[in-house]
Write a protein that binds this DNA or RNA. Structure first.
Lengths: 334, 334
DNA sequence: TTGTACGCGTTATCAA
DNA sequence: TTGATAACGCGTACAA
């Protein structure tokens, strides 16, 4: 690997001039410039990222911590982040957090020790205070995904979950349903609480009444959705529709409904949340509340870039959900 | 951010001693060692990765290029790589290649310019020669995933696709099928060719005969699978089973079969390849040939580690497929 | 067992 | 417009 000094010798200039040509920091006389460029090409020179980092204190990389990179949900988000990073000549360093405070802490420290220029963090284990501290006192700019922390709202990219929950319930109400159940995610997660709140508001606004026997807390996972559904069928067998806090739980729930001889959507209508790709593969295909994950990833990246270069790109912080109509909801006829 | 010099002053030793304590390169007297450790803790010192890289010429990171990080297929693979990386205190730098030679080249150069210690590459666009050149003359160790290049076989982690193709066909034959169609991936991909070859070998071995009217080339995508299936139904309407080159195409194909009034598996049995996530969500659930992607990711990472630290971890280079029985194949009764 | 001093490759400051 | 030179922070011969 050639060094800047070798290039400078070949071009018969000083290393400083080579640097100037490459970084465009100071004008260089065209003929000189030309010689440098030729030398660079001849030696196939690439600047040493370590040395550059040491001198500039910037790495050209942004760190991403999410629950699990390989899940469809976070995968889509990371994809959006990567797009923007590439467009701006930055690279991505990823580290999964596995929804565990200790593990998330490790991931973040790891990324920081690698001198990332900034971080995109989706944390489920860490407390609000930890995140506030990280954002305020951390050594690098940090933006948050999927969690609205009031004190640092300007660095958060989130979904309007309350609105999404209401949207789901309203859609079912509009299709004639009244006995609408809801399987929530863990209520320790704001996402899950907000969706529940939206559901409740919509029901009350419609005069359908909120009845907590129709609500079961679960875990955002397929098996959990299946179990919660069995519980519902036992407790309130007269339900005509179920709103699941995410698509995975809806998938498990639909299986349970089938096993109990309830046709979807003939006997029970089902609606999910997220619109991950599996929604299109279920039978019937799943009507769901869509989160524009790729766009949210792009937004998070843009937000971070704003903090890195102090430009003012327009960034949406709160995304609106969108209802995707498929086949899992039927109109009630009476 | 504290520097090694500040730590050394606080501990009243030289910077060299601090370095020795932290890296364990040379024995340090216990009391001295203790003082250093306390100073490190007191100042919350983290070594500067740039300076360290400059001095050691190692970054502690490995680069990963795959078609698309966010796809379930590659996501699972990357997940395996990440596991091993973490276990060894390394971090991951990712860059998608999008199955395009130009883009893959850019990704690889990018990762290399970031001074990754090694690379895990899954390339679909680059030619064998490019990869051979990269492995042999590149500035860092490289291992390949999903492509067996004869000249550099020792750095390749692959699936026994031929065997997998045969396995799929044999399974259908064992269930009484004789008129078995095959929808392949792009035959420019070795994966697709090998699976086709296995299919052919199994059919011929069983005396069922190979008939190319039963074979349609497609693109590994859902829509392609749907179109290919329509073509098959037109050309050889008497088929009783279809082997798809991957699960995505099987998903599209099953939709087409339904649209044509063919029940799966009542009228037509279907088998896929890969066993990605979605196979379990289709209706009926998809019988398929499983690739142990996470294990393959771990193997690729171990292989790379072997080249980095010259240890000799046992690594499987060629993985055996495994048939996962679900509901999409029925026995033919006559 | 510990300290001194240099080199790693770049950018930035200052002077010419 | 260009060149010398001093950081940047660490690891490591070499010396003590």
């Amino acid at each position: 690997m050639a060094t800047i000094r070798e290039v400078s010798r070949l071009a018969r200039v000083s290393p400083a001039t080579v640097s100037r040509v490459l970084n465009g920091t100071t004008p260089v006389a065209p003929p000189t410039r030309e010689r440098v460029l030729q030398a660079v090409a001849a030696l196939d020179y690439t600047p040493n990222a370590f040395a550059r980092g040491l001198a500039t204190n910037r790495s050209g990389g942004i760190g991403v911590t999410v629950n699990e990179v390989s899940s469809p949900y976070f995968g889509a988000f990371v994809f959006g982040v990567e797009q923007v990073a590439r467009e701006n000549g930055l690279h991505l360093m990823v580290s999964s957090g596995f929804a565990d405070a200790q593990s998330e802490r490790t991931s973040i420290d790891f990324l920081l020790s690698r001198r990332c220029d900034g971080l995109v963090v989706q944390a489920e284990g860490l407390a609000d205070e930890d995140l506030i501290d990280l954002v305020r006192r951390g050594p690098a700019p940090v933006v948050l995904f999927g969690r609205a922390v009031a004190e640092i709202e300007d660095v958060c990219v989130v979904m309007r979950n309350e609105r999404g929950g209401a949207m789901a319930a309203e859609y079912l109400l509009a299709h004639g349903h009244r006995r609408i159940a809801h399987v929530t995610g863990p209520l320790s997660f704001p996402d899950a609480r907000e969706r529940l709140q939206g559901y409740r508001r919509a029901l009350e606004a419609a005069g359908a009444g909120y009845d907590e026997r129709y609500v079961v807390e679960s875990d955002f996972r397929e098996e959990g959705g299946a179990r919660a559904t069995a519980r519902l069928l036992e407790r309130v067998p007269d339900l005509t529709a179920i709103f699941y806090g995410n698509d995975q739980m809806a998938a498990g729930g639909m299986r349970t409904l089938r096993e109990h001889g309830r046709d979807v959507p003939g006997d029970v209508s089902v609606i999910g949340f997220d619109d991950v790709f599996l929604a299109r593969y279920l039978t019937p295909t799943l009507t769901t509340v869509r989160q524009p994950l790729i766009d949210m990833g792009r937004a998070a990246a843009h937000l971070l870039l704003n903090r890195l270069d102090h430009k003012r790109r327009e960034v949406v912080h709160r995304f609106d959900p969108e209802l995707v109509e498929r086949q899992s909801v039927a109109r009630i006829v009476r």
